[in-house]
Design a protein around this nucleic acid. Sequence first.
RNA 1: GCACCAGUAGCUUAGCUGGAUAAAGUAUUCGGCUACGAACCGAAAGACCGGGGGUUCGAAUCCCUCCUGGUGCACCA
Length: 569
Amino acid sequence: MVNFKEEIAKEIANSVNLNWTDLETYIEIPKNLDNGDYSFPVFKLAKELKKAPQIIANEIKQTIKINEDIIKKVDIVGGYLNFYINKDIITKQVLETIENNPKFINSQIGKGKTVLVEYSSPNIAKPFHIGHLKTTVIGGALYNIYKALGYNTVGINYLGDYGTQFGKLIEGYKLFGNEYDLTEDAIDKLADIYMRINNLCKEDESVLNNARENFKLLEQGDEYCVKLWKEFKELSLKEFQKIYDLLGSKFDFITGEAFFATKTEEVVDILKSKGKLVKSEGAMVVDLADKGIDTPCIILKSDGSTIYATRDLASILYRARTYNYDKSIYITSYEQNLHFKQIFEVAKLLGLDEKYTDGLEHVPYGFVRLPTGKMSTRLGNFVKVETLLNDTIEQAYKIIEEKNPDLEDKQEVAKKVGIGAVIFNDLATSRIKDEIFDINEMLNFQGETGPYIQYTYVRTKSVIEKVDAIPKFKDIKIEKLNDEYSQKIIKLLYNFENTLIQVTEKNEPSILARFLIDLSKAYSSFYNENKIIVEDEEIRNARIYLTIAVGKILKQGAELLGIQMPNKM
RNA sequence: GCACCAGUAGCUUAGCUGGAUAAAGUAUUCGGCUACGAACCGAAAGACCGGGGGUUCGAAUCCCUCCUGGUGCACCA
């Protein structure tokens, strides 16, 4: 496809004798359509060329060689040079590309590169509540999008399956295990046991010591403890899998902390041999004061055992060797900002190639809070993902019942719509923002929501279903799509791939979520203003063709976010 | 106390590598189904872009400072 910015930048560059790549970054897209399709602020050159913007603008306008196929018109308004592109060429190229390449992605940007995405990472034996949803959904979307751009993508679920907490849980099971039947709702019951033993540990030091002892035994491979731990893990995974199935979350590897616990020795050895490990308040730490980080990174606790940082470092070593990654992103709440800052600094001391340490990136997201305050498993103040999904699915079912009672497979559709609403809600805003969870907001499927995108898609399907002959691209009269509504859609479609690239540059799926809203709005306006199935065959075919293109991109974009599209709703 | 993040319409947000009149949704009021799906479209109203300084031809955007909220700050993850 023509890169309009590049073409314009090159032509201006010729005219003023400057480097076109710099000029390209100056080019903007005017908010107001009256100001053209692309705009060049001439003020930017005033200093460099030592001339008034007006004079420069005139000179450029006069000397620039305009290829009429690409640029129709150049205007000077204030200090801007406004470019009006040839609508037919962009329309033709967009539709032609979608015809030939249904995925509408040409970029080779990810070819030969490997990206690791660590996400979801729940603690086993604890309920999967809506606080874990963001990492699962954001990570899933990023995973899909990197993959779509050609990256070799590896999704890792780094389970919290290690640590003193399991010593406690084992102790709790020993004491009250016989009161519970773990064949059903295992996690809830384990969480209950954990809550009880945790309270007991606070009251009774000897219980806490038993818990610590259990963990030590677990580490040493004690048969009873390992057997219990495995059982807890399996029960938890089984329940998590139910949620992952609903959300469509997929992982290439489910590798928990325990896996790396056996690999920490090398980390300690390397740091020791480099003299970076120093004793501080009884623990072995790496001092990071010279890196601007006040808090040293603990590698070995006072009792000589490892800590999560040590295991994270071991995982970096392992992943560098195993996957030869170019980029490795960690999706967690911003609570862990300092932790990742620390381990990324310490990772530089492990003797790894710079490629690997440069590729490390923490992708933080904001807190989810309940109106009643911060969520806490310990205090029982949380909303389970399962409950939330059931509520939204039920709501979707109710609305279908009301609006489209004859629909087939209502339950299936309600599932797609209800889950789509939840996923979209977590992806629609910048990930760094905190969210106060409001169930009423979740259950409102109007406006900028997942169901709105699905509804728009369903309308495209419905239109296409109504026509008997699907037009071929070669028969489309491009110039029939010159109206403002069609053109708005075309411009959005033109930006689809660029939008995906932006998502990966910022690790920000909300950019795609917004794009899909914009496209849905543009199509809804088009739909209301233009009758599609009209007598005039040329107009009809052109509009149907545009409808097909919108449907394809909506579906693809939504699926990249993890949202399934129903054909009817 | 130190560090990081956030503060834009009643509410939820977009815009933040500086650019033309600050953009949406929601809530409120009004209009549109004898056109292909009204979970929609259109309109009205709603903003000292947290306050104050500065840099610049130009600041929601960059710098300084203050205020508010959140998070982190050593053996939990």
